[in-house]
Structure formats: structure tokens, C-alpha cells
Nucleic acid binder design. Structure first.
Lengths: 224, 224
DNA sequence: GATGGACGTGGTACTCAGTACCGTACTTGC
DNA sequence: GCAAGTACGGTACTGAGTACCACGTCCATC
């Protein structure tokens, strides 16, 4: 298989070389057994340079986390209050698509995270940031409801949980169409979140699905 | 106000003295500015002894986390499969009650956690453990449902979110009856989780509420 | 073509969390 | 008295993360 990355090894930036070196060494010797000095040495830079590019040894595993957060925040802020829940679903899709586009690198990171407790913690901390953004965007979904904050907390955590459920299945290697699964999961989330407040709401996420596909999901939503 | 803790200072165990010293120093100088050596010195023990009692500087903030996890696991395992969702709610109540019984100490910890990123991460990591226990106990709630795992993930994250919503309001000093609030929040969680699978389910949590209180909640549940 | 600033880099030295190991006191049971 | 267990203190070490300084390169300006 030809490399999807056409960049020759020699001209990789120090930033990229550090990531390559880190993943390689973590794979070969484990996370705890690899020192920052080892990573820097393999990347051909000094230890100082490592910390100039990545705040910590863990951070080199999650290189674009901040960019994802910014993209999500931008997507949420751009949405009108009435379409905030659609925006949240779209934001989750942004994250999912990012991981899908990473391919094997994402699965490599997943194997690492599941086997190193400190990395699990770090990942959870990242999820919390997503969830906070979602919750802040969602309070306006139940205007006048005294429980709006609770509902926003519930729905934001559900969105994150649903996204993670689909992502993890894909990361574990399940042969699924992750985006379709995300649609199904998010339908369930929105469905549950709407209970006890408004009538059944049908939300069709803008995507390249076939009309039959859309119709089927509408039928499911109305079935309750 | 008389001290709720009748134990004289002199006979506090080293374990307890370390906690007291840690919270005191964190309050006075901040978490990052306090070294483990400072804590040990104030507690009148050596640095080694600190690490013998608590695995890390963060761990001294969450002294009974493991015990809570065990209590929850025991509560969940003791429940028959058909009453697992009730058990999960009760497990959340165990955690809430623990914090309520801590009183000012819990609020002190909350102030600390909200102001120190590394402690926030640690707390999130703890929540994840609760959530995993809940999810494992809940899969059997939707027998035969191909989406049972997703539903369990959604509901377990909702239980944690609802618990945290109530707990945080109380921690911030809101004058609420936290257990009643938890009942209301959990009713909403169960209600949402039941959507699209079974008919409206009414779950009355075993508690010392008045019949009128129970009746009101039943009325709310049936209103949808 | 020299000057000077911005920037990326490497090196050194430091603090502090966490671990390993060893020696010592103080109990408890025989 | 003695032996085993337990709690503790001290020392020395590794490694992450920070602070600081010194050096080279690339440019823009005069």
C-alpha cells in the first residue's frame, strides 16, 4: 500500500518527527519505559525542543486536541440558538471524522490509551472539555424549563457517550460505517433528550445519506 | 460551632493528620505551591510515610475513593438483574450521601478541584470508573435489544451526569435538599432511558419520602 | 555588506513527584 | 527475654517539567 502521506521522511518538521518517534518508541518499549530524552534523541532534536512543541509526554499522543476543541467551539457559536442541538451533533461528527481520517494512527493511539492509566485519565479530561462546550450550547434548548441545566448536562453527556460508543467500536476494528452508526446513536440521544418536554421532534442531520435512509429514520422516530 | 469531630488532635492517626495538613496547606498556599515534604512536615511525619499512606499528592484529596467504588460494586452485584437500574440509582445515592456527610470538607475539596486542572482530571478519571461499573450492570436492562450496549452507555453516563449536577449545586452552596433533587433527576434519567423500548415505567426509589411526595412524582411520570 | 531583531534550537542546572532500599523503633505473642 | 510483624525515617535515585542562557539562521533595514 502506498503511503497516504507523500511527505518524504527527511523534510518532516521537528514536530512531526517527534510524534513519529514517540509512537514508535511507545509501541516498541511501552509508554512508561520510554523517556522524553529517548523520544527527542530518535527525532534528532534536543530534550528542550520536545517540551517546546508539546507541553508534556502525554501531549504528544493527542497532537490536535486543541484544534478540535476550537473547531467545535466555532461550530457551536456559529449556530443559531434554535439549531444548537443540530450543531452539537455536527460537532460530534467533526470529532468522529477526524479520528476516521487518522486511520491506523487513531487505532494505535487507542491501543496505547487503553493500556496506560495515565493516558486514560488524560483522554477523559479531554472529553470533559467537549462536554462542557456542548452543555453550554444546549441550555437554550429548553427555554423556560427550570430543569434546563440538568437537561443540558444529561444531553451533553449523552452526546459524548454516544460518540465514544461508536468511535470505540470502530477503533476496536469493528467493520462498521461509523458515520451511519453515529446518526443512529444521535437519533436516540435526541429522542431521549426530547422526552417530557416537547412533542416528538424529528431532526434530520444534513448529510449525504439517501432519501430512503432518511425516511427510515423518520419512520423510526415517529414510531414512539 | 462545636467541632463535629470529637477526636482530639493529638490522637489523630498519621493518615488523618496528613489529610488535615494537606487541606490546610492547599488552602493557604495553593496546590502547586505545596510540596509533599511540606505536608509531611506539618503532619509531623517523614516524606516516606506520606507515600506509604497515599499513592500520590493528588490521592490525599480523595481519601475514600476506592472504598466508595467497592461499596458501589457490592451494591450492584447484590442486585438481581431485573432490579439493576434501581441498584444503579441507589449506588449514586451512596456516593451523594457520602459527600453530604462530609459537609464542609467536601466543599473545600470542590473549591480545590475547580481551581487546579490536574485535580479536575483526577476527578474525571474517578467518574469514569463509576460509569464503567454502571454500564456493566445496566446492559442486562435491555435483553434482546441489539443496541443494549449503547443504551447502557447512555444511561450510565446520564446517571453520573445527573448525580454530578445535583452534587455540584449542593457543593456550590445552593440551599437544596440534595437527596430529593437526586430523586427528581434520576426519575428523568430513567424516564429518558426507557424511551423507545418499553412503555412508560414508573420507578419509585425506596426512601423515606412522604406518600404525597411519591404520588406527585408518579403523577409527573405518567403525565408524559 | 554590516547591523539588529525575531525565531528555533541545544545545553545546563534546578525543583519536585514518585520509587527502592535499608536501618530502626515499637509493639504483640510465645 | 525473644522473634516476628508493623510503622516509620533517611538516603539515594530516576525522570518529568521549568528557567535561563548561549548560539546559529533567516530576514529586513540602513
Amino acid at each position: 500500500m502506498p503511503s497516504p502521506d507523500p511527505t518524504p521522511d527527511a523534510v518532516l518538521s521537528a514536530r512531526e518527527r517527534l510524534v513519529e518517534a514517540a509512537f514508535g518508541l511507545f509501541d516498541e518499549h511501552g509508554f512508561d519505559e520510554t523517556t522524553v530524552e529517548d523520544i527527542a534523541a530518535r527525532a534528532g532534536v534536543g530534550r528542550t525542543t520536545f517540551f517546546r512543541h508539546y507541553r508534556s509526554k502525554e501531549a504528544v499522543i493527542f497532537p490536535v486536541h486543541d484544534e478540535l476543541l476550537e473547531a467545535i467551539a466555532a461550530r457551536l457559536e456559529a449556530a443559531a440558538p434554535s439549531t444548537r442541538d443540530l450543531a452539537v451533533v455536527e460537532a460530534a461528527r467533526i470529532v468522529l471524522r477526524h479520528y476516521l481520517s487518522e486511520g491506523e494512527r487513531a487505532r494505535q493511539r487507542y491501543r496505547l490509551i487503553t493500556s496506560v492509566p495515565s493516558l486514560r485519565d488524560r483522554e477523559m479530561a479531554g472529553l470533559r472539555q467537549y462536554q462542557r462546550l456542548f452543555a453550554a450550547a444546549l441550555v437554550s434548548r429548553w427555554p423556560g424549563d427550570p430543569e434546563a441545566e440538568l437537561r443540558a448536562d444529561l444531553m451533553s453527556s449523552a452526546v459524548v457517550a454516544a460518540h465514544n460508543h461508536v468511535l470505540r467500536r470502530w477503533l476496536r476494528g469493528a467493520p462498521i460505517d461509523a458515520e451511519t452508526e453515529l446518526d443512529r446513536a444521535m437519533t436516540m440521544v435526541i429522542d431521549q433528550a426530547s422526552k417530557g418536554h416537547a412533542a416528538t421532534s424529528v431532526v434530520v442531520v444534513q448529510s449525504a445519506r439517501s432519501p430512503e435512509n432518511v425516511a427510515e429514520r423518520v419512520r423510526q422516530a415517529l414510531a414512539d
